[in-house]
């Protein structure tokens, strides 16, 4: 059987990094390439960070640099907004763990060209896991919408139905580039688009017990992840009063690997607000009151335990998962 063909569109970012380390360790997927986008950090940082993670994973794939800012700024010829100060992802976007960049795995082909070429080569086969702003996908749609309608699936981390993070109602990725979100969901009649938003991701808190387990039981990669998430952990204490972290971008990867980690999926209409107080809010018509086309599969609940076990198994190995099960027994 041929492997499922994946493109990972990302703005690493700590949670992106954990998601990518997991994805690259999953044998049944063929990851064709990684496309970078500005979001958590500026485009140079996110491209470099993707390169670092590919090198760390010793994979023979490339990162294709994408949009340096949101759709309207790119189209308007505006420069990138400065997003390279210290924030929850650390100054370098990877919590300061100091992995080396590998210039050889950074392609000269643009993200948009790479995505379109891949879909043309494998129409109806490409699944895009999109965990940053959707700018690259929107720019590809602008260039060749017919081709983009031949994407098999989009697994998207972004949005939220009943919660936000940038504002009370808006999640960062979707808020950062609302126009692109609208363009992508306009494909919803032809392409399955699965939204893994904040309602789902916040159910899956990796608490300090889980993280201590990862440090102690999951070898060198576990120690790397533990080191990487330390500032992120402090940020969750500061902003959410969690003793733990939400690894948002990991969840669409886990969904793509095993859709049964989702325990409630709602096929519904999704629209996004472009301006005003609720800018970036995605309005999901869970009860079909608008009777509009259903362009989104929205994940509302996760099986948290299953998510964690799957993560332990895929990112590390079967043995780590079994140890996890024995350290955290269930009834």
């Amino acid at each position: 059987m041929s492997k499922r063909k994946i493109i990972f569109d990302t703005d690493p970012g700590i949670d992106d990094a954990v998601a990518l380390l997991t994805l690259l360790n999953y044998e049944p997927f063929e990851v064709l390439g990684i496309t970078s986008v500005a979001g958590n950090k500026g485009i140079t940082h996110t491209t470099d960070n993707a390169s670092k993670l590919i090198k760390y994973s010793q994979k023979d794939i490339k990162v294709y640099q994408g949009a340096h800012s949101s759709y309207l700024r790119v189209k308007g010829g505006l420069p990138a907004e400065g997003r390279d100060g210290g924030n929850v992802h650390g100054v370098d976007g990877l919590g300061g763990v100091g992995l080396p960049v590998d210039p050889n795995n950074i392609s000269s082909i643009s993200a948009i060209d790479f995505i379109l070429d891949s879909v043309r080569t494998y129409p109806g086969e490409i699944e895009i896991i999109s965990v940053g702003p959707m700018t690259n996908l929107a720019l590809a749609i602008d260039q060749d919408e017919a081709t983009m309608r031949k994407v098999k699936k989009v697994w998207s981390m972004g949005g939220g139905v009943f919660r936000g993070n940038v504002t009370p109602v808006a999640e960062f990725n979707y808020w950062f580039d609302t126009v692109s979100v609208e363009k992508v969901y306009s494909l919803g009649n032809d392409v399955d688009i699965v939204m893994v938003g904040l309602d789902a991701t916040h159910q899956c808190i990796f608490d300090a017990n889980d993280l201590a387990f990862i440090r102690l039981a999951a070898g060198e990669k576990g120690e790397l992840i533990y080191a990487m998430v330390q500032d992120y952990l402090s940020a969750y204490w500061k902003f959410n009063k969690y003793i733990g972290i939400v690894i948002h971008d990991l969840l669409p990867v886990l969904m793509a690997i095993d859709p049964t980690v989702c325990s409630r999926l709602v096929h519904s209409n999704l629209r996004i607000v472009h301006e005003g107080l609720t800018k970036g809010q995605c309005i999901v018509d869970l009860v079909d009151s608008w009777k509009l086309n259903k362009n989104a599969y929205v994940v509302m609940d996760m099986d948290v335990r299953k998510c964690k076990e799957l993560f332990m198994e895929v990112c590390f190995n079967q043995k780590v998962k079994e140890t996890y099960q024995s350290v955290f027994p269930t009834l």
């Binding site: 608490d207 300090a208 017990n209 993280l211 201590a212 387990f213 952990l233 402090s234 204490w237 500061k238 003793i243 733990g244």
Partner: peptide
């Protein structure tokens, strides 16, 4: 004393 408690204390 769990890692969760230690992390809270650390904060």
């Amino acid at each position: 004393l769990t890692p969760n408690m230690r992390e809270m204390i650390r904060q």
